[in-house]
Write a protein that binds this DNA or RNA. Structure first.
Lengths: 129, 129
DNA sequence: CTTTTTGCAAATCTTTTGCACTCTA
DNA sequence: TAGAGTGCAAAAGATTTGCAAAAAG
């Protein structure tokens, strides 16, 4: 299973461009609406496929909201976590070397071989308080 | 909006009992199948409603898997996080005072008012290695 | 040209709801 | 009894998929 190289298409560029302008996690549906409102002609299925493809290559981050919807956002590539405002959905990246270490420790204590972890902190940001 | 008190019904007891015997997070569909296989007569919708109700009262924990499905599991009531085996789905509760503190700190630095957080560590447990 | 991509609509799948009926307190 | 709770089937909604047409390299 060789990593496929994605071809550069109008639609994919459009999706990438949109993502670059968004700072909060957005669902495929939202991304699609944004594209349409910008006058871009891209099918919903294509948005889904593109977003998935990008997520697989690690180019963008994915997470699930409480309704089970997949949310995407362009992300820097280094390991980090998120601080999410529950009111405006603004997201701030936070790196956490301390926590990475703690994670490793806990896992070892329990006899686990760590493959990954998720840390998300929710709250109200300064603007929304 | 006063917290409603759930009435005790055959179906609810059945769901609770099943949950008590399960050690891994399971979807509503799975719980329903288990009930049926045990000969319990409970509707799928009821399982969904019951699971949601229980989750709301904090009696059970919920999390979303990568497919966006809601997974439930009976849980002790004190605050803690999970260490999940990606092979057998066994879940170990971990408490993390250190992390709670770190979370608080980070948030304050960013001007956030913390409302909650999620920490899940994935890996392979001793038995599955 | 050959292989990927698209678009659309149809198909899936999980979860939610409307409603009439059945229980619990 | 009154108000909750239940079962079923229909409705939602998000995501996926089949397929023929269009685009990329």
């Amino acid at each position: 299973m060789v990593a496929e190289q994605l071809k550069s298409t109008r639609q994919r560029k459009a999706v990438s461009n949109i993502l670059a302008t968004i700072t909060k996690f957005s669902s495929a549906q939202e991304v699609h609406k944004l594209l349409i409102s910008r006058g871009e002609k891209v099918g919903l299925a294509t948005v889904y496929r593109t977003l998935q493809a990008l997520a697989e290559t690690g180019a963008i981050d994915v997470l699930r909201n409480d309704d089970g919807e997949a949310l995407y956002r362009a992300c820097s590539t280094d390991h980090h976590h998120h601080l999410v405002c529950t009111k405006c959905n603004k997201t701030t990246e936070i790196s956490a070397p301390e926590v990475e270490i703690w994670t490793e420790k806990i896992a070892r204590e329990q006899g686990y071989l760590i493959s990954g972890h998720t840390i998300e902190v929710f709250g109200t940001c300064a603007n929304c308080r």
